[in-house]
Amino acid sequence: MSDIETLAPETADAPAEGLGAAKTGLTEALLYLNGVTVTFDGFRALNELSFTVDPGEMRAIIGPNGAGKTTMMDVITGKTRPDKGDVYFNEGRTDLTKLDETEIVTLGIGRKFQKPTVFESHTVLDNLRLALKGQRAALANIFRKETAAERERIDEIFETIKLTEHRDRLGGNLSHGQKQWLEIGMLLAQDPKLLLVDEPVAGMTDAETAQTAELLREINANGHSVVVVEHDMTFVRDLGVRVLCLHEGSVLAEGTLDQVSANERVIEVYLGR
């Protein structure tokens, strides 16, 4: 532990090869971003963004539109490659910039999109079956049979997301809020180490919002790390976790919600006077 390498960005240029690109000792964080920059046609979506998420931590990320919140998730999940900077997972053991989306999911990073995306013509039950951690190979899945353990796990998830009575309905027939919960349930079924949740309560009623906060707290209490991007301040307060405020692609402020919302710059660019 004491021989931690320097955190200087230049160590990022050390040769790294795929999954074996270990940076053990670099960090103890589950997720480690350092100096990440992403440019689209000259626009800096992320500008030297650095932050970490500890194992078991839940973190809320706020910030105005265009602050880079979704781009940050795209970088972590392999959808967008950073121009420069380090993105490491599993205490620095895995370089995420070398992997594609599916490999990153397999490592244990689940993502919920801003717009709820469930499989509309499948039943709620089949949605969870598809998401459940297990065989992913095409040919093997032709002959796959569901095991008792899998059925039990699905029942547990139904209890958590409180959709048990909707199990045989089609995904496309659920209400907006129910779709959001189903998608969170699908993430849970993947059993990721880290859940990235993009605006889970957009378009929800107050009661649904409160329920969602409770659901995420429960998921976090069960040992999953969670990163939530959200605009809804009541919801962020309900979560009661450390908050990171992004602005123009970098970290503007970090701390408890009270500390962040007392920050002069945050008030100026985001909360308004």
């Binding site: 999911v105 999109f113 469930v118 992913r136």
Partner: peptide, 18 residues
């Protein structure tokens, strides 16, 4: 079921690990 899921939401399928 994965095929039908691809038809409905291919990106979601990739982010589910298939």
């Amino acid at each position: 079921k994965v095929l039908i899921a691809i038809r409905d939401a291919e990106t979601r399928v990739r982010f589910t690990g298939y």
